[in-house]
Design a protein around this nucleic acid. Structure first.
Lengths: 354, 354
DNA sequence: GTAACGTGAAAAAACGTTTTCGCAAGAACG
DNA sequence: CGTTCTTGCGAAAACGTTTTTTCACGTTAC
C-alpha cells in the first residue's frame, strides 16, 4: 500500500497560478456573486482533471456541514425480509446518486445507543431506521429528538415520525378474503410476538376475522417462541424454523384442526409447511398455508407458498425519496407524512378450496 | 426536528475556565508530555458530562486523519450467503468496538468506480471487499493501488491482497469424499458461471474427482444461466431458481442419469431438489443432492439438504481482526496474509448410499 | 477630475478539533 | 540571590475545504 499522494485544492491553485478560493468556486460551479473569466475557469478545470484531484470529503463536510452521505440502521437484520430491505434501500439510493451505508444493531440496547451517538454526529446528513423495535421503546423515545432528518421504514403502523410502511391492514384483507373465498372458516394464526411486526399483524388478523363474523378459538393461535428450540445448538433463524415445525404439528394434531394456517411471516410458514408434510399431510389438500412477506424462501419450497408480497423495492424507493426531501427542507411540515404502500397477493400452490 | 444545540469543546473550555487544548488533552486521555492537575481534570470531565458533549467526528477526522469507522463493499449482495456475510461482518466489528458500515454494488461498473472514490477519500480508515468480482477485473487492478488498508473476504482463491476465504479445496474434498463413500460414481455438477465462486468450484470439483479416478461426462455438467428464465417476470434469484429446476429435470431425464447432483451453491440445490420432486423422484432415494454454502434455505426445505457450511461467523471475525491490524500498522508485511477457514460438512437428509 | 461602477480575483475567516511548542510561576538547588 | 527543574497550562498552527470580505484596476457617468 503506497502513500496517498493526495492532490489538494492548494496544488491546483499553485499549478494554475490562482488562489485556492478561485479554484474552489470554479470546481463547485458557484455562479452567484462570483465572476471568473472563462479562460481561467477552463484552465483550472483542466488542471484539476490532469492532476486527478479528488476533494477531501472530510474537509468539505467540516466547512459546509454536510457530507452527502446517508445511513441506515437495520434494527432486525436477521430475517429474510429485513436482510433484503437493507440491500434495496442502498440500491434505491444509488439510483438517485446518493451513497448510503447500512449498519445493523444486534438486538442490544448498547448498540442502539452507540448508533444514536454516531448518527447525531456530523457524519451523515440523514438516516433511515429499518424495521421494528419492540425492545427499544426507550431508544424510540430518544429518536423523537434527533437532530438529523430520518425516516422509519417498515417500523410498524404506530411510529410517530415520517415513515414508509406496507399497508398491512389492506394486505390482511387481501389474504383473508382469499382464504374465506376458498371456503375456509377454521383459520389458525401462527407467529412469534418477538418477531418484528407480528403483534400488529395478530391484531389486524383478529379484527378482520371478527368483522367477517369468524372467531378464533385460543387453540388456533400458535405462539412460537423463537428461542425455545435448542438455542445453544441452532442459530436464531434455524431454531425458529424448528420450533415452528413443532408448533404446526400440535396445531394440526388437535381433535378439530384448522383447515388453513395463516402465518405471520415467511419463516413461520416454511416451518408450518414442513410440519404438515412431516405429519404425512398433503399441502394444500389437507391444510392450506399462507405466509406474509413473500421473500425468497416462499418460492424455493415445494409446494410453493401463496403469500402476501411486500413491495420491497417500492418501499425502499419511497423511503429514500422522503429522506432526501427531508434533508433538503427539514422544517417542511408537509414532509412529516406517513406513506403506506399496498402489498400484493401472490397466489401459488399452498391453498385450495375446501 | 429541533436545531442541534451542538455543544463543542469550546463551550466546555469556557465553562471550566481553561483553554480548549487543555480540554482536548483531558478528554482524549493524553498523558505523554502532558501535565494537568487532577483537580482540573476532574472538573473538565464533569462539565463535559453535564453538557452532554459529543465530539464532532468530522473535525476530529480532519485533524487526526482517521475516523474510527470502517466500511465494507458488498459486491454481490443478492445471494443468500452474501446477504448474511454483510450482516456478520458488522456484528464482528461491533464486538470489537468498531463501527462498520456496509454498502453494496449492484453489478454495475460505475458503482464500483463511485465506491472507489469514496473509499479513497478520508471517510473510512479501511474497508472490506465482500465477495467475488467476476466482472470487475479492471476495478480489481485498481484496487491493488488503493491508499487505504483493505481485506478481501470470500473473494475467491486468486486474490492478490490480504484476504479471508473458505478453504474450498478442503470443503470439496469433504463433500466429495462423503458422496463417494456412499458409493456414488455418477456425480453431476450444477452451477452458473456468473454466480460468485462457481467457476472456481467447478475447477476444484473436476480436479478432485479426476484424482479419485472418476470422470465427468459433459452431459453431467449443468450450466444454469441465471438470466435465462423469464428475466422480465422474475427477480434474479427467483429466475435462477426456476432455471435450476428446468436444468435439474433435463439432467435427470437423460438415458443414464447421475445418482447424485453436486450443486455449487444453495440456490442451485434448492432448484435441483424441486426439479427432482416435480419429476416424481424421491430425494434421496432416487437421487442424492448436495449443496455448498449452507445458508438458511438449506434447512427450510423438505428433505433438508446435506451441505457444506461455510463458517460465516468465523470468516467475518478473521476479516475484521485482519483489517484492524492492517489499519494499525499498514506497512507490516506479515499482515499481507491469506487466511483460509475450514468449512464443515452438515449431513442432513438429501443423500443416501447407493 | 472625481465619484461610481464593473470586472476579476485574492485574502482571510471559518468549520471544530488535535498537536506542538512555549512560557509563567513556584520549588529546589548551589 | 541567581540558576535550573518541575508543574500546569495556554497560544497558535494545522487539517483541507467553503464562504465572506476586500481589493486592484479599469471604464463610464456626471
Amino acid at each position: 500500500m503506497s502513500r496517498n499522494p493526495a492532490v489538494g485544492i492548494r496544488d491546483i491553485a499553485e499549478a494554475a497560478g490562482v488562489s485556492i478560493s478561485t479554484v474552489s468556486k470554479i470546481l463547485n460551479k458557484k455562479t452567484e456573486g462570483v465572476r471568473i473569466s472563462d479562460e481561467t475557469r477552463q484552465r483550472v478545470i483542466e488542471i484539476a482533471q490532469r492532476l486527478g484531484y479528488q476533494p477531501n470529503p472530510i474537509a468539505t463536510a467540516l466547512r459546509s456541514n454536510r457530507t452527502g452521505i446517508i445511513s441506515a440502521v437495520n434494527l432486525n437484520p436477521g430475517g429474510w425480509f429485513m436482510g433484503r430491505l437493507g440491500v434495496e434501500v442502498q440500491l434505491a439510493a444509488q439510483k438517485r446518486g446518493v451513497e448510503l451505508f447500512v449498519s445493523t444493531v444486534n438486538n442490544r440496547a448498547e448498540s442502539v445507543e452507540a448508533h444514536l451517538t454516531i448518527l447525531q454526529g456530523q457524519l451523515f446528513d440523514g438516516f433511515l431506521l429499518l424495521g421494528d423495535m419492540p425492545s427499544y421503546r426507550d431508544a424510540a423515545r430518544k429518536w423523537k429528538n434527533l437532530y438529523k432528518p430520518y425516516v422509519s421504514v417498515a417500523g410498524g403502523a404506530g411510529i410517530q415520525a415520517p415513515m414508509v410502511h406496507t399497508d398491512e391492514a389492506c394486505g390482511m384483507k387481501l389474504i383473508l378474503d382469499y382464504l374465506i373465498g376458498l371456503g375456509h372458516q377454521k383459520i389458525a394464526f401462527m407467529g412469534s410476538p418477538a418477531w418484528p411486526l407480528v403483534p400488529e399483524r395478530f391484531q389486524l388478523f383478529r379484527e378482520y376475522l371478527t368483522k367477517r363474523g369468524l372467531c378464533i378459538p385460543d387453540n388456533y393461535v400458535s405462539v412460537v417462541d423463537r428461542f425455545s428450540y435448542q438455542p445453544e445448538k441452532f442459530d436464531a433463524l434455524e431454531g425458529l424454523h424448528r420450533a415452528a415445525i413443532q408448533h404446526a404439528k400440535s396445531l394440526l394434531q388437535q381433535a378439530n384442526p384448522p383447515t388453513a394456517i395463516f402465518c405471520a411471516a415467511d419463516a413461520f410458514a416454511l416451518g408450518a409447511l414442513k410440519g404438515a408434510l412431516q405429519l404425512g399431510l398433503a399441502v394444500p389438500q389437507d391444510v392450506s398455508i399462507t405466509s406474509f412477506d413473500g421473500t425468497d424462501g416462499t418460492f424455493a419450497c415445494q409446494p410453493e407458498l401463496t403469500t402476501l408480497r411486500r413491495p420491497i423495492k417500492k418501499v425502499a424507493a419511497e423511503a429514500i425519496d422522503l429522506l432526501l426531501a427531508l434533508i433538503d427542507s427539514p422544517d417542511d411540515l408537509a414532509l412529516q407524512k406517513r406513506i403506506l404502500v399496498e402489498p400484493e397477493l401472490i397466489v401459488r400452490d399452498s391453498c385450495t378450496p375446501i
